[in-house]
Nucleic acid binder design. Structure first.
Length: 503
RNA sequence: GAGCGCGUAGCUCAGUGGUAGAGCAUUUCCCUUUUAAGGAAAGGGUCGAUGGUUCGAUCCCAUCCGCGCUCACCA
């Protein structure tokens, strides 16, 4: 045997594959050669096939996905990165090589040399002249069969559907479930389009620390780690914000970072402990400017991946064409609850919240309660792209106070399909005010609010040197991808979502 | 964290208080344009784990593990 796994622990299918491996070795066939010079891809060959042109020699490589033996001939489907193509083998042309195909399995990776033809039933296929084994597969792949009707629609039979297995063994999921790869290709296209847009607007992509001595920039509990050499506690970042704004202090006009953040909190349909954020900071701008920037950026991205500005999500057709709807938070609450909270104090709002049947924690600020009412009664209704602006100061410790309305900040969030898509504000650059906000947060932390912000003295020092007026933005990339792919779970847009250990 | 549900062959799933079935996959045979190929035969399972009830448990009960959905938390 060729490895250390006790043979008794293997199921029959795996035993058989190891036997085949031994038989191949005995025949002098290398089951794991080093390379293959391929010249073609399945989908391109099928798309560009011309019946009238002379025999075209092709070389493809990929995974065997089906085998149909018919005595002295066989048909087999080979899957490469672009799709699948059928190959045709004849015994009287290939001799031993034909017989050896019996030692191959679904899942094996081969290279095929042959010429194109069209079968009786009209499928563009490769008449193989020779093939070479490139990698022997020792584990049975789940078998997903597909039927293609005359209109070209595919029906999948017994898809590999166990979510646990799909997430734990994404490589299998990708190999056998065709539509999974499309989601991730779209994810990449979305991020590429976003970079393209940001770069075109002269924003500079930068990198800031993932390991931070103090975490900040969001309300969340962190992951904690330890640096041995420094014998120091370090946190995985929960946001990039405070470091990016230090760069604005340093003189950059517009910086952005697309990166992983980490939050030590619950996992569900829309939360993974590590997730991807894009944060952008632009000097000398405010939140009004940023609102327009966001809708234009998203419009650009949607058009780029979609070729128009509309997407269908269930029964809703969502149109990203700017300008998006704009409502102040108070207006939105008035619209969906008919309650005007603007001039009400905490006790009055508590009464209203009770009337509206809002879940209320024992201790909550006026602003916190307003935000709570908004989340429960307004947010689910925001289907078409909508900006909600002017948030209470208590829930926005890094946002600049509103230029005219006391108690509010110049902050907005974008909502689509009832989900938050982005968060942005005119950045607080007054170091005195920022210290007060931090102090307020510190009090909350001491009262047991584990998500309250810490006092970051170095960040305050940076602000004291002077930060220009700045507009900042955060976009949850995973949720944007969910939105644009129609994914129902964040796990469907993250290759390897967090799972509990297997054993 | 709570509630509900699930865990049976490699995969997708039935099923029963008397230690199990199907389709695909696998093995053998037939088949030189098939395509969810077809035909004939065969093999394959500590029914998630551990306890308990029972003459007897895969099934009933308890605990645990893992997963899913919903809710809570989390901008």
């Amino acid at each position: 045997m060729t490895d250390n796994i006790p043979i008794d622990d293997l199921n029959d299918l795996m035993k058989r594959r190891r036997e085949e491996l031994d038989e191949l070795l005995k025949k002098g066939i290398n089951p794991y050669p080093h390379n293959f010079e391929r010249t073609d891809f399945s989908a391109d060959l099928i798309k560009n096939y011309d019946e009238n042109s002379p025999k075209q020699n092709v070389k493809i490589a990929g995974r065997i996905m089906s085998v149909r033996k018919m005595g002295k001939t066989l048909f087999s489907h080979i899957q490469d990165s672009k799709g699948r193509i059928q190959i045709y083998l004849k015994k009287d042309e290939m001799g031993d090589s034909f017989e050896n195909y019996h030692l191959l399995d679904i899942g094996d990776i081969i290279g095929v040399d042959g010429y194109l033809f069209k079968t009786k039933t009209g499928e563009v296929s490769i008449h193989a002249q020779k093939y070479i084994l490139l990698s022997k597969s020792l584990r049975p792949l789940p078998i997903v069969k597909e039927k293609i009707d005359e209109a070209g629609n595919k029906t999948f039979f017994d898809p590999f559907s166990d979510k646990e297995l799909r997430y734990r063994q994404r490589y299998v999921d990708l190999a056998v479930n065709e539509n999974v790869k499309e989601v991730f290709l779209k994810r990449t296209a979305i991020i590429t389009a976003m970079r393209e847009y940001l770069n075109s607007q002269n924003c500079i992509e930068v990198e800031t620390p993932v390991l931070q001595p103090l975490y900040g920039g969001a309300a969340a509990r962190p992951f904690v780690t330890h640096h041995n050499a420094l014998d120091q506690k370090l946190f995985l970042r929960i946001a990039d914000e405070l470091y990016l704004k230090r760069l604005i202090v340093g003189g950059f006009d517009a910086v952005y970072e697309i990166s992983k953040d980490f939050r030590n909190e619950g996992m569900d349909r829309t939360h993974n402990p590590e997730f991807t954020m894009m944060e952008l900071y632009v000097a000398y701008k405010d939140y009004n400017w940023m609102m327009q920037f966001v809708e234009e950026m998203i419009f650009f991205i949607v058009n780029k991946i979609n070729s128009n500005s509309k997407i269908n999500l269930g029964v809703n057709e969502i149109d990203f064409n700017p300008p998006w709807k704009r409502l102040s938070m108070f207006e939105s609450i008035k619209k969906y609850t008919n309650e005007n909270l603007q001039n009400s104090d905490l006790d009055e709002i508590k009464k209203i919240a009770k009337k509206l049947n809002i879940d209320m924690p024992l201790v909550i600020s006026r602003g916190g309660l307003i935000d709570q009412i908004f989340s429960e009664r307004v947010q689910p209704n925001l289907i078409q792209p909508t900006f909600i602006y002017d948030y209470p100061v208590e829930v926005s410790p890094l946002a600049k106070k509103h230029r005219t309305i006391p108690g509010l900040t110049e902050r907005f969030e974008g909502f689509v399909n009832g989900q938050e898509l982005c968060n942005a504000f005119s950045e607080l650059n007054d170091p005195i005010d920022q210290r007060e906000r931090f102090t307020e947060q510190k009090k909350l932390h001491l009262q047991g609010d584990l998500e309250a912000h810490q006092i970051d003295e170095d960040y305050l020092r940076a602000l004291e040197y002077g930060m220009p007026p700045t507009a900042g933005l955060g976009v949850g990339i995973d949720r944007l991808v969910m939105l644009l792919t129609g994914a129902e779970s964040i796990r469907d847009v993250i290759f390897f979502p967090q799972m509990k250990p297997e054993e």
